[in-house]
Computed example of a mutant assay.
Amino acid sequence: MSLEKLAHLSGVTPASVYLSSATEFLVDVLSLKGLLIISVDNEHDEFTEGALSTFFSYKGTPTSIVFEEEAFSKDLIINQKAIKLDHNYIDDIDEGTMSEKYDFYACPFGKLEESRLIAIAYSDINLLSKEQVEFYEFNCKILGNIFQLRSDYEFERSKLIDQSKKDALTGLFNLESFAGELKKSMQNTRSQKAMIACMVVTLDDFTSINTKYGFDLGNDVLFEIGNKLQNFVTPRDFVGRIGGDRFGIVLRNIGSDFDTKSVATRVANIFRKGLLPVGKELTASIGITVFPDDSLNSDDLIARAEIAAKIAKRTPGTHTAFYKELESNY
């Protein structure tokens, strides 16, 4: 692994791949026998029993090596320096002789207070010169910092991607993500010859609620409904907020229309439990489609459930309508 190739990889590869390449570079250049990256699993950089765990092992480097607290000097923490570990405080559970056969060098991998990682290299006795140890120390800091930047970038990117899939108010799937999850569920269900129910729950006259009580209370109601629906469904099902006053529910692997009706009845009961100030009742219209009977397309399944919800809205109070029943009646 050349330094030029490693520099190129720093900007184009996942953090895990970069870490593997960085450790390969150190092992090759310094002719090391192996290299471990260990994590300090407490907040005070104390190397107490149970505080250290293996984060990464380079190509078969034994992970059974045990480092006692006394093996690490204050120079490692305070001055962020590479140190040679005392053999008396190193043991290997499997072989028992590694501490006698090799020299061990520990160095913060990046900034210890940020990465909480320590690189531990081992080589033949007295192989590394002072200059090589300094080279090891310098590169551990540089390569560790780059790895940390890559890790931070991937973490923040993952958060942004996750946020883009969610409705900002309720934390549920937004319409695009809801439709995407429904499409994947339909693809997975085709081979199982099972059914999926798609419900669209539309709140009745919600605009007047915002007008009368204010948008803050309206948002609180939407959040509460989303929370209740999320807690209502099973782990295999999912919920989304697919419009201002519309929620979607997908029930995977339903057995029959009767099962769906039973669930819809229980969903309707959610709206009868004090979501608005005393004396006021919030109602909803629920439209239902079933895959594969009503459509083989996810967007059509949602659109037809919305049509059914509009028909259900014609009946005062919380009411449910199946799209397939509408087709037979109109």
Rank of each mutant, 00 (worst) to 15 (best):
K74G: 09
D257A: 05
D220G: 06
T13R: 12
N174V: 03
L9M: 12
S177A: 09
F147K: 04
F56L: 12
F147I: 01
T170L: 04
G274H: 09
Y136P: 07
I249T: 08
E154F: 03
M98S: 01
R157S: 05
S158R: 15
L172N: 00
L251T: 06
C140D: 06
L301E: 05
A15Y: 01
L19E: 11
L160Y: 15
M1W: 10
S185K: 04
N210A: 05
S298V: 01
I307Q: 02
Y330I: 13
R252M: 09
Q148E: 15
T260M: 11
K184A: 12
A268P: 01
V267Q: 01
S31G: 12
C198G: 00
F155P: 04
F173H: 03
Y89I: 06
A7C: 10
K273H: 14
V233A: 04
L30A: 06
R116G: 00
N126G: 00
Q192P: 06
T189P: 03
S262Q: 14
L301D: 02
K310H: 13
S285K: 02
S177T: 08
L175M: 13
F178G: 05
T234D: 12
Y136V: 04
C198D: 08
E306I: 08
R246I: 09
K5V: 13
E4A: 11
V200E: 02
L76I: 08
D205R: 11
G248F: 07
S285P: 00
C198S: 10
D259L: 07
K84H: 07
A168G: 08
D92H: 13
E24Y: 10
T54N: 09
G243H: 07
E68H: 15
V200Q: 07
S31V: 11
L182F: 08
S53Y: 01
D75R: 13
G287R: 00
K193Y: 12
I311V: 15
T234Y: 14
D245G: 05
A321K: 07
A179P: 02
R266T: 13
D124V: 10
S328A: 14
R304I: 03
D162C: 10
G248W: 03
D300S: 04
S191Y: 14
G274N: 12
A168V: 14
T260C: 14
G244I: 08
M186A: 09
D245Y: 09
I125V: 13
E134D: 15
I90R: 06
S129E: 07
S256K: 01
S53R: 05
L30W: 04
D220P: 10
Y105N: 08
R150M: 11
L301H: 05
F258Q: 08
Y330N: 14
L229P: 03
T97W: 11
I302G: 02
G274W: 01
Y213S: 09
I311A: 12
S177N: 04
R150Y: 02
I209P: 01
N210T: 02
E224Y: 03
S191L: 12
V201S: 06
C140A: 12
Y105S: 04
K159L: 14
S158I: 03
L35N: 02
V133W: 07
K84L: 06
R157D: 09
S99N: 15
T23F: 04
E69Y: 11
L128F: 08
P108S: 05
T265F: 13
L182W: 02
T320M: 00
D205P: 04
E156A: 12
P292N: 08
I142D: 10
Y105A: 03
I288F: 00
G96Y: 09
